[in-house]
Design a protein around this nucleic acid. Sequence first.
DNA 1: TTAATCTCTATCGAACCGGTAGAGTATGCC
DNA 2: GGCATACTCTACCGGTTCGATAGAGATTAA
Lengths: 147, 147
Amino acid sequence: MISQKAKYALKAVMALARSDAGQLAISQIAEDENIPKKFLEQILLDLKYHGIVASRRGKAGGYALCKSPEEITFGEILRIVDGPVAPLACLSRIAYRRCADCTDEADCEVRRVFASVAEATRAILDGTSISASLRPREKKIGSLLAG
Amino acid sequence: MISQKAKYALKAVMALARSDAGQLAISQIAEDENIPKKFLEQILLDLKYHGIVASRRGKAGGYALCKSPEEITFGEILRIVDGPVAPLACLSRIAYRRCADCTDEADCEVRRVFASVAEATRAILDGTSISASLRPREKKIGSLLAG
DNA sequence: TTAATCTCTATCGAACCGGTAGAGTATGCC
DNA sequence: GGCATACTCTACCGGTTCGATAGAGATTAA
């Protein structure tokens, strides 16, 4: 299960990727995506610290993506918000931790099975960019048709 | 991340599958697999309620598998102990819950990406039985060679 | 100067996690 | 019968995480 926070983060980043001006205020995103505003503030700040988004303060302020949506993957966002993308700590690449109950890691059947789960999951999450998963919203389709 | 509890459950079931007599006492499993005994009690009781194992009380008591190891999958154990095998509640088959923040589920990009993660994960976990992942331990290899 | 915006730190209740405690009950064996 | 060895059941507990909420502060445009 991914956290609510991670889901909000993904939605927010996608909203930025979709926006015409490339910039949106927190309250705009919060409203559009049904995310509690104060919670979203924290999330975006976190994404900013990790170089995913940039911010501008003041009256015409807001958030924008730092890189193109093609370069941002689901895996990247998830690791920032939820931590390791691994079903077991002993399978994490960024936060490996030995299991206290395993005498021999190489001999652990559980680990072997979950290693393939991890591999499959990573293939998808690190292989899917924000833009790849994006598709226009109804409103936007409307404006495209009109334009 | 799967819980420690689920990992213990899998290890315990595998220990039973591996055992010669087909039956083991809680304390035996706890010792062999480095699992806190009182915690393991709860786990096995839970597995018993779900028809995975059966118990016998008293002096010659212990736990045994209810079905053959070929019929028990990783997914089955995980669902009992950790709940749904799904990255999002809106993708769970056994415990579906609508997301409060989604106006249209069919239009949710996050959901679409994680649907494929769920599919890949289930393919592995529901396709791998306890016996399939099993392999003899050193001790057992020794006794096989000796016998 | 004012209004809108991001920034930062603190706090909070509820749930979950990983376990521990202990009294109770069944069974086998002498 | 009595005892040792199991499983059974309920309760509890400290710590952490989750999903927020609160509010004061800093920055900027107009």
